[in-house]
């Protein structure tokens, strides 16, 4: 019997977990290397550019706070697309992608909350305020924790995938709320200064380190995401093997 080809010729070929694992084995060292290089450049720029005339040195907090906040929303968007993949196309890796992304998204949201609080104290005079932006990001963090707990609580992966996918899509309503909260409500948090229809209002001195750090965080996310997906595929394989072994052990004369 000839071995099935593991070559990836079109996007749908990635639906095969074995092909996906082969691809991850090739790309992850490059992704990790690129992430490290981008972080080296981003951190260099973050600490060599001048401080702000009003905020002083604390402006450097922006270079970790803003990328983490962007990634917290991007990660949820990736999960929402994966949820669509689960419910509409029943893509075998869609649920794996959503499940693997949840802890990463929770971590990025936690970084955004902690660094935001550490930036708020010297600039606003308070660690925390229940304004629309901060509260909606906190809700996002709770949603990530809820989705992780839900996936862990259900034994049947197919059922857990469907329930999680529906919950992810319902929770996606929070993403535009986070984005536009600073425009819709009167918040202590400043309005957008980079992603704006009339272009960034931030000085290039601060914009460049911010953009390089944002790209570094994005590559960090994709590196960790593909590796976490690989772990999840292996976890599911182990569960299937154990189930088959248990069934075989129950049938006399049919050893594994």
């Amino acid at each position: 019997m000839s071995e099935p080809s593991l070559a990836i010729r079109k996007f749908s070929d990635l639906a095969n977990p074995t092909r996906f694992l082969a691809l991850v084995a090739i790309v992850w060292p490059y992704l990790a290397g690129l992430t490290l290089c981008l972080f080296a450049a981003g951190l260099y720029l973050s600490f060599t550019t001048t401080g702000d005339y009003q905020q002083g040195e604390t402006v450097r907090i922006m270079y970790v706070h803003v990328p983490a906040a962007w990634l917290s929303m991007m990660c949820y968007t990736v999960m929402a697309l994966s949820a669509l993949g689960t419910l509409v196309w029943r893509h075998p890796l869609a649920d794996v992608s959503a499940k693997a992304a949840a802890p990463i998204g929770a971590c990025f949201t936690l970084v955004a909350l902690i660094t935001g609080s550490l930036w708020g104290k010297p600039m606003w005079g308070t660690w925390w305020v229940w304004d629309a932006r901060l509260t909606s990001v906190f809700v996002l963090f709770l949603m990530y924790l809820g989705l992780i707990a839900l996936n862990r609580a259900m034994d049947d992966p197919t059922r857990a995938a469907k329930v999680s996918a529906v919950l992810i899509l319902v929770g996606f309503v929070n993403i535009p709320i986070i984005k536009f909260s600073v425009e819709w409500w009167n918040t202590l948090h400043q309005p957008a200064s980079v992603v704006r229809l009339d272009g960034p209002t931030i000085d290039p001195e601060f914009l460049w380190p911010l953009l390089v750090m944002a790209v570094a965080f994005t590559f960090l996310f994709f590196t960790l995401h593909v590796l976490a997906m690989r772990n999840e595929i292996l976890r599911r394989r182990i569960a299937v093997l154990r189930r088959h072994a248990a069934r075989s052990a129950g049938r006399p004369g049919d050893a594994a």
Binding site: H65, V111, I114
Partner: peptide, 29 residues
């Protein structure tokens, strides 16, 4: 507290959370 404290604390916290995440992925694998 000085501005340097808040900046250092932010970078240390971000690094710590990312380090835990990387460690979790590696140990899980």
């Amino acid at each position: 507290m000085s501005h340097a404290f808040y900046v250092t604390a932010s970078y240390v916290a971000a690094f710590a959370v990312v380090a835990v995440l990387v460690l979790w992925v590696w140990l899980d694998h």
